[in-house]
């Protein structure tokens, strides 16, 4: 198995993780694509015998954090985020994605980043607490308290239907 075919095998899960981090599917695929490109460039840093999926989750999560910072900067510089929803669309692709945004998407997006990534790794990707804490580079206690707060917030946001 080559590096590329190993990546191809876990790609469906990586796309799912990207979607759960991102505000919509189009952003998720952009993130996933960027993570693949980065992984191919940084392949020498991958240590065979360790878990490729955890390594990829980490790359993707770091890209996403960086992107979030630059998006916040841009939002402060140009317009409030709500205004940003209506200007500068990258065409119909974006609008379609917005229309399809579901309750779960919206609730996930309302979470602070640190809670969303913990929720995504454990509840969506099914990682153990230990694996998720390693991906995020935080102690187990930190991870579990983010899970508790994130779940509380989601249950509130999603109401009785949760």
């Amino acid at each position: 198995m080559s590096f590329e075919s190993d990546l191809l095998a876990i790609l469906p899960r990586l796309r799912r993780f990207a979607a759960s981090l991102s505000r919509d599917r189009a952003d998720g695929d952009d993130l996933c694509q960027a993570a693949l490109e980065k992984a191919l460039r940084a392949r020498d840093q991958w240590q065979p015998g360790t878990r490729l999926d955890s390594w990829m989750y980490r790359i993707m999560r770091n890209l996403w954090i960086d992107e979030g910072r630059s998006r916040q900067r841009a939002a402060r510089t140009f317009a409030p985020e709500e205004a940003g929803e209506h200007v500068g669309h990258a065409g119909d692709r974006d609008m379609e994605a917005h229309v399809m945004l579901s309750d779960v998407d919206r609730a996930m997006h309302a979470l602070p980043d640190e809670q969303r990534e913990a929720i995504a790794l454990v509840l969506v990707e099914g990682l153990s607490y230990k694996e998720a804490a390693e991906v995020l580079g935080v102690p187990m206690g930190t991870l579990t308290s983010r899970l508790v707060r994130g779940r509380g917030a989601l249950i509130e946001l999603l109401g009785e239907a949760a």
């Binding site: 080559s2 590329e4 075919s5 191809l8 796309r15 996933c32 694509q33 693949l36 490109e37 191919l40």
Partner: peptide, 8 residues
Amino acid sequence: MRALLNES
């Protein structure tokens, strides 16, 4: 994405 990984 597939095209990106298509060197195998």
